[in-house]
């Protein structure tokens, strides 16, 4: 697979009057086209900071980020951040609108996405009229519509209850695969990382440095998503990552 993003020797420190906080320490890895990459690490270690560096919103203190071929990235955050003062459709168009790319053709595409993922009849409703899962789907459509290639997911499921979380994460990862996007998911949940990803990166306590990398592969009859949780390999991966985090 082709690498589309290269992070090389990234370090980052936050500065405030009270002092300096080192959040990232010499992080190096590549992101490959079309993969689903998960990032796990202790809380407060610098995972969100890492995504922010990939997105270009934060500049590293040291090191370089190189994104191949003008690819854009877009965020999906813990809350869906649908704006209550816009309709679902207009929320889904936000990315295009900000990129000054809201053509009639692209509007049509947003409509098709809403239709494809079961939100057509809610297109002109307010976000508050949707269920938690539907809201996350709408947020995903907003991200997809923006024609970003790299989706940065910062604990996008952690606000949902366990039941919804299982189905929504499964659903969203399938949509991302179907649309052939590359995803970088930050999560606290090891089983979520194992069941959804092609690759899991484990980071140390703050300042985050890369501790270990796991390639996740399941036999064909299990595939990624909910069914992966039943594969015998699932436990194995889970335990390995768990031990690595605990070290």
């Amino acid at each position: 697979m082709e690498a589309i993003a290269h992070l090389k020797n990234i370090s980052l420190s936050y500065h405030s009057p009270k002092g300096e906080t080192k959040a990232l320490d010499n992080v190096t890895f590549d992101i490959y086209d079309g993969e689903f990459l998960s990032i796990v690490g202790p809380s407060g270690c610098g995972k969100s900071t890492l995504l922010s560096v990939i997105s270009g919103l934060s500049l590293p203190s040291e090191g370089t980020v190189k994104i191949e071929g003008n690819r854009k990235s877009a965020y999906m955050l813990q809350k869906d951040h649908l704006f209550e003062w816009r309709s679902v459709f207009s929320n889904a168009c936000l990315g295009l609108e900000l990129q000054k790319n809201l053509t009639a053709e692209n509007r049509q595409k947003v409509h098709e996405l809403l239709k494809k993922y079961g939100l057509e009849e809610f297109a002109f409703k307010k976000p508050s009229e949707l269920s938690g899962g539907m809201r996350q789907r709408a947020a995903l459509i907003r991200t997809l519509a923006s024609q970003a290639d790299i989706l940065l997911l910062d604990e996008p499921f952690s606000a949902l209850d366990y039941q919804t979380r299982l189905t929504v994460s499964d659903e969203i990862s399938k949509i991302i695969k179907k649309e052939k996007k590359t995803a970088v998911l930050v999560t606290h949940d090891i089983s979520e990382a194992v069941s959804l990803s092609d690759r899991v990166l484990v980071f140390s306590k703050r300042p985050a440095s890369l501790k270990a990398e796991f390639k996740i592969e399941f036999p064909d009859n299990f595939k990624n998503g909910i069914s992966a949780r039943e594969a015998p390999e699932f436990r194995e991966y889970f335990n390995k990552i768990w031990k690595e985090l605990d070290k």
Binding site: K72, Y75, L77, H81, L94, S146
Partner: peptide, 14 residues
Amino acid sequence: ADKDDIRLVRSFGG
């Protein structure tokens, strides 16, 4: 205004 709402708009190039 929500900081993450702003981050979202920024991340789309706003």
